[in-house]
Simulated scan of single mutants.
Amino acid sequence: MAKLALGSSVSIEALEQFWQTIVKGIEETKAIQDEMRQTITWDKGVFCKTFFMIRGLYRI
């Protein structure tokens, strides 16, 4: 185990860069999910209004 630790060729800078890439990916994924939730909610509202307008139950 000590030999493996001493022979490691991964630098701290590389690990930090790797970690920042992971964090950035997580943040971007959350932003995309939030945007999709808003889009789906908006689409549902438009669909419901259109559906009820066709049925004559909703007026603008």
Rank of each mutant, 00 (worst) to 15 (best):
M36H: 05
A5P: 00
Q38F: 05
A5K: 10
E13I: 02
Q33H: 05
Q33I: 12
E27D: 12
E28R: 06
W42Y: 11
Q33A: 14
V46Y: 07
S8F: 00
I40K: 10
M36K: 10
Q33E: 14
G7Q: 09
I40F: 07
V23M: 06
F18H: 09
D34F: 07
E35W: 05
V10I: 11
T21V: 07
T39R: 12
T29I: 06
L6S: 09
I32H: 11
G25K: 01
A14S: 10
I22N: 02
T41K: 15
E13T: 02
Q17R: 11
A31D: 08
K30E: 12
K49R: 13
Q33R: 09
S11A: 02
Q38T: 10
M36I: 13
G25P: 03
E35H: 06
L6F: 08
W19L: 07
G45N: 10
Q17W: 01
M36L: 12
E28A: 11
G7E: 14
E35A: 09
F47R: 08
Q17N: 13
V10Y: 03
Q20E: 04
K24F: 02
V23Y: 04
Q38N: 13
C48D: 12
K30R: 13
E27Q: 15
Q33T: 08
I40D: 08
E35R: 14
I22S: 02
A14D: 11
S11Q: 03
E35T: 07
I32S: 11
T29W: 07
E27N: 13
W19D: 11
M36G: 00
K24I: 02
W19Y: 10
K24G: 05
E35D: 11
K49I: 08
T39Y: 06
A14I: 00
L6I: 04
T50N: 07
K30A: 10
W19M: 06
E28L: 11
A5Y: 07
I22R: 00
D43R: 14
V46A: 09
R37Y: 12
F47G: 06
S9H: 07
V46T: 07
I22W: 01
L6V: 04
E27S: 09
W19G: 01
G7K: 08
E28W: 03
T29M: 08
E27T: 09
K44A: 14
Q33S: 12
I22Y: 01
L15C: 04
T41N: 15
R37C: 08
D43S: 14
V10G: 00
I12V: 09
A14L: 02
E13D: 09
R37A: 10
M36S: 05
T29F: 10
Q17C: 04
V46C: 04
S11V: 01
T21C: 06
G45P: 00
T29G: 07
Q38P: 00
